[in-house]
Structure formats: structure tokens, C-alpha cells
Simulated assay, not measured.
Amino acid sequence: MKTIILFAMLASLVCMSCTHKRQQAQQEAIPDKELFIMESSDTVAGIQDASVHKYSITYDTPECYLWYVMDLPDEYQDRPISMWMERPIYGENVHLINVFVSNPTSTSLMYGRGWAVERWNGEEWVMAKTKGDIAWFDDGFNKQKAPLLYCFSLPIDRYYHLSKGKYRISKSFYAKREEIKLNAEFEIK
């Protein structure tokens, strides 16, 4: 009987250890490029390419490239639900782009993995040139809290070829079963 109890305890310990390691592996996503994370002049961290420092980004929700979520700062309380880029202009060698979404309402937002990059061709927005086929699982994540500020750190160079031009990122959110499609424009120079 003692052997059975000892075996059951050992098996439980092994299972808990494996589960903990799997959760850690899911939480940490390491981008293809080396990154240096530094503070910027505003309230968000800037990410720049560096060859001497190598840091991984620990995503809050790796499936969606959601880097972090925080209570909405007072300065965003009077805006509508909106999305914007960390910077208006990026170089052609950009690896990650940080996209911010503010939800000043009391209704939590649902979001999925999907996002798209479109290019302005002078007449209309068209799909940007991709590095192969892109498909996202149609699922929904929700922090069950509001108001919030979301920061998505999107590995743009993993999915798109971006030459000089005007672009926008599109991402859909849902509040009370209604779609809220948000766009944020930027340039590649």
C-alpha cells in the first residue's frame, strides 16, 4: 500500500513539473531577431535592433502577440476605442511593430490572433506582400476587464515584405457581439 501511495505522489509530482514547464514555454516567445528593449520618452517601451544584447519578449498572450495589458492611463480615458502605432515611421528593416489599443469603455473587448497589413497603392488599400500564405485561427481571447490599454508586439517581418510606402495594420475586436475594426497607419522609409 505504501508503494502505491509513493508511486501516486511521484507521478503527481512529475505531471505538475511537466505542466509547469509547458506553461513557461507557452508564455515566452522568442523573436527571430536579436532585440534590445529600452525605455522611450513616453509611457511605453521602445524596441530597437541590437547585436550585443539579446532579450526575448515574454508575451501576456503569445497566440495573439499581446505583449502586455495595463489599466488605462488617465490621458486615454476621454478617447473612443482606438488603435495607434508606437511610431509613425519605420525603416525597411523593421522586425517588430508595437501597436496600442485603448478601451476606455466599461465593456471588455474580445480579440483573436488575426491581424493584417495593407498598403496604400495611391487609390485604395490592398493586401501587403506576404511571405507565403497567412491564416489565423478564428478564436477569441478576453481579459474580462475594462478599461484597459493593450500593447501588441507584432513580428511584422515574419509575415510581410515591406518596401517604402504607406501602410496600415487592421485588427478586429468585439464588444457585446459587435465587431470593432481598428486601423493604425504608418510609413516605411
Rank of each mutant, 00 (worst) to 15 (best):
E123K: 15
C18L: 14
E75N: 10
T105K: 06
I37D: 08
F141D: 05
R113C: 09
A116P: 00
R22N: 09
W84R: 10
M83W: 01
Y160P: 01
F137N: 09
D157R: 08
D71A: 14
S108F: 05
I4V: 11
Y111P: 01
M70D: 04
K189I: 10
I156Y: 11
M110W: 06
S170A: 09
R177W: 03
N183S: 05
W120R: 06
E118D: 13
A11W: 02
Q77G: 01
Y111S: 02
R113D: 06
Q77A: 14
P104D: 08
Y174G: 00
P31Q: 08
Y160A: 00
S40C: 15
E39N: 14
Y159K: 05
E75F: 07
I47N: 02
V52M: 06
V44Q: 12
Q77D: 06
Q77I: 14
M16P: 01
E28I: 15
R177G: 05
Q23R: 13
I4D: 07
S170L: 13
K131R: 15
M127V: 12
M1L: 11
A146R: 06
A45K: 15
N103K: 11
Y159G: 00
V14K: 07
A146D: 04
M85D: 01
H53F: 12
L182I: 08
S51K: 05
T61C: 08
E63D: 15
Y90N: 04
A146C: 07
T19W: 12
E63V: 01
K129I: 00
C18M: 13
H53G: 04
T130H: 04
Q24S: 03
M110Y: 11
G165I: 00
K176L: 11
K129F: 01
F137E: 12
M16W: 13
V117D: 02
E118C: 00
D133I: 09
T130A: 12
P147Y: 05
V94F: 00
S41R: 09
S102Q: 11
A29K: 14
L10R: 04
A45S: 13
F173D: 03
L148V: 09
I89V: 14
I89K: 13
G140N: 10
I169R: 07
A116T: 12
Q24I: 02
Y65K: 07
K189T: 11
G165T: 00
F7T: 15
D157K: 07
M110V: 03
F137H: 07
I30C: 13
Q27M: 12
I188N: 05
F36M: 11
G91S: 14
K145R: 10
W67E: 13
D42A: 08
S153R: 12
N142E: 13
E63H: 12
S17V: 05
W84P: 02
K143T: 05
